[in-house]
Design a binder for these strands. Structure first.
Length: 573
RNA sequence: UGGGAGGUCGUCUAAUGGUAAGACUGCAGACUCUGGAUCUGCGUAUCGGGGUUCGAGUCCCUGCCUCCCAGCCA
């Protein structure tokens, strides 16, 4: 068979094995049909441990592990750790944690390119012997000069025709540490006139007296990524080497090494890397944000890193659904952040427990409610999930409501509380505003109301309706909390756009973090633990931050609820 | 400018020579004890110009535009 047995599948249309259709998947289906690799599917996720994983890597993880899962194959985790100067064990550990969290399962197949250093060295010797590689004494600057340009060919290195014996001797001495950093390199002898710059005698090894996080000081020469990557895939028996578009030009080089060496030839397939509006997805730039203190770390909830998203309250399921639905292609595009947020809300709406929390408290006194009386009102935990049950919320004479839910002088279409108006307190009573108390500056600091005892639980026996239902907490029962609200880290859809002579730091959003203290939260959340996810009714989805502890609660707003009123209000202005 | 890869609603993805479809966004409405959720309605999109064909987003020619490549980074 050469086509999808179920016919062309749509993103939402699961195949028998459950995978969304895309061109990479189609190639694999065809390969299986042709008996290529004996029908075997083996992919890999190959990060360099020089930074934290971000949502773009999640796309790759989902693709590679998802394809392996769908076709009964395997997917390895391999660290491409060929540059000891930028890599660190901290990154290795975070990548393992994040890839696992996203659902990656590599069983016992966690590898490192550094596992292959000896093999790679032997292969380099083999290429020297076959006259396909040579030691070059040119400096970095000289190599650059002689490489030519996009339109002009390069020049052959004066060291290009050294004898095999001399090359062998020099290369062995490079390894032995006889030469200083940068003094010599091992280069593949291909074609200095190739229109593909990657084929102009590319470097295979450079001298780097640098301690490696795994091999320590065993080596002072390190293979370049271009020399190591393809062979590492080959060693692992990878059938489909899925990578991003910028490596398209490197494929001929990888093929050249594989063919000269006569080893297993994985098929490289390139796809478009993820771009998201208002988001930076470059490890280099994210590192800069961390190092310059523009965020609080790699796991700052404003960061698009997996650890940042996790801390922010994203679920792996939401991220996976997003990855499955954005598709995989070769088009250079930019996905709207709202799509990610859509899948986030969709997931959280299903699973988050509803609670009441008041972020900016306004004191409400119910004048006709008995002093000292406390009622336990029954509240639904999750209208989307009956099995989540109900809970009791204490109600008393003095409450807090949201400052936004009261207007002394309400605009048109505003139908929350205002003088003379009746609203419903969620799961409580109908209340009517009878007056306000102001401070010296004229600000409303307290609202007085009366309640209708007949409306207990929120329904009027006479059938009368109210326009609005607002949330509340009992002042004497509520627990205080700090709440952190987030906005996009950048003010531009594409913060990498430097066309106006600006750089990404110029587009940092000064309001990306707003810390609210003195928030009042219903008492059932007093023991809220990290990992729990809540919907603060009418406000959004929230989760306890890593720094939260009983007695000193801290919540992150994961994402706000869709806010129709905010839109109306915006239009009114 | 050399090479490589792309160009379908605002965004992303489908349509594999035979009715250009879906999701998100936006707008309008219904419903609602969350202005949430849900539901309904609303789409002048095939980069341009030629050609082949009964029929072209798809094939051919040509032009235009975008992205990637001149690290001893990956």
């Amino acid at each position: 068979m050469s086509t999808n047995p179920s016919g062309p599948a749509r993103p939402d249309e699961a195949s028998p094995a459950g995978g969304p259709s895309n061109f990479v998947r189609d190639i694999i289906i065809e390969d299986i049909g042709n008996g290529k690799n004996g029908g075997r599917v083996h992919t890999r996720f190959p990060p360099e441990p020089n930074g934290y994983l971000h949502i773009g890597h999640a796309k790759s993880i989902n693709l590679n592990f998802g394809l392996a899962r769908e076709f009964g194959g395997k997917c390895n985790l391999r660290f491409d750790d060929t540059n000891p100067e930028k890599e660190d064990i901290e990154y290795v550990e975070s990548i393992i944690e994040d890839a696992h969290w996203l659902g990656g399962d590599w069983e016992d197949r966690m590898f490192y390119a550094s596992d292959y250093f000896e093999q790679l060295y032997e292969w380099a010797v083999k290429l020297i012997k076959s006259g396909d590689a040579y030691v070059c004494d040119l400096s970095a600057a000289e190599v650059r000069e002689q490489r030519g340009t996009l339109t002009e060919p390069g020049q052959n290195s004066p060291y290009r025709n050294r004898s095999v014996e001399e090359n062998l001797d020099l290369f062995a001495r490079m390894r032995a540490g006889e030469f200083p950093d940068g003094s010599r390199t091992l280069r593949a002898k291909i074609d200095m006139a190739s229109p593909n710059l990657n084929l102009r005698d590319p470097l295979m090894y450079r001298i780097l007296h640098s301690e490696h996080h795994r091999t320590g000081n065993d080596w002072c020469i390190y293979p370049t990524y271009d020399y190591a990557h393809g062979q590492s895939d080959s060693i692992e028996g990878i059938t489909h080497s899925i990578c991003t578009l910028e490596f398209e030009d490197h494929r001929p080089l990888y093929d050249w090494f594989i063919e000269k060496l006569g080893i297993h030839h994985p098929q490289q397939i390139e796809f478009d890397r993820l771009n998201l509006t208002y988001t930076l997805l470059s490890k280099r730039k994210l590192l800069a944000l961390v190092q310059n203190g523009r965020v609080r770390g790699w796991d700052d909830p404003r960061m698009p890193t997996v650890s940042g998203l996790r801390r922010r309250g994203y679920t792996p399921e939401a991220i996976r659904t997003f990855c499955q639905n954005i598709g995989v292609s070769k088009t250079n595009g930019i996905i709207e952040l709202s799509l990610l947020e859509h899948y986030l809300r969709e997931d959280l709406n299903r699973r988050a427990l509803r609670v009441m929390a008041v972020l900016r408290p306004l004191r409400v006194v119910i004048d006709n409610y008995p002093e000292g009386r406390v009622e336990e009102m029954e509240a639904v935990n999750n209208p989307e999930d009956a099995s989540a049950g109900t809970r009791k919320v204490p109600f008393s004479k003095v409450l807090y409501i949201e400052q936004d839910d009261f207007r002394e002088d309400p605009p048109k279409q505003y139908y929350r509380l205002s003088p003379g108006r009746e609203v419903r307190l969620r799961y409580g009573y109908f209340i009517t505003c009878t007056g306000v108390v102001k401070d010296d500056a004229g600000r409303v600091v307290e609202v007085h109301c009366t309640y209708d005892p007949e409306t207990r639980g929120g329904n009027a026996p006479d059938g009368r309706k109210v326009k609005s239902t607002i949330h509340w907490v009992s002042a004497s029962h509520a627990v205080p909390a700090e709440v952190r609200l987030y906005e996009n880290l950048f003010t531009r859809e594409n913060p990498s756009d430097d066309s106006e002579g600006k750089q990404f730091t110029d587009y940092l959003n000064p309001n990306s973090l707003e810390v609210l203290t003195g928030c009042q939260i219903e008492p059932s959340l007093a023991g809220a633990a990290v990992g729990a996810r809540y919907q603060f009714e009418r406000l959004g989805y929230f989760c306890p931050d890593l720094e939260s502890k009983p007695g000193a609660l801290v919540f992150n707003r994961t994402v706000a609820l869709r806010d129709t009123w905010a839109k109306i209000e915006k239009k009114l202005k």
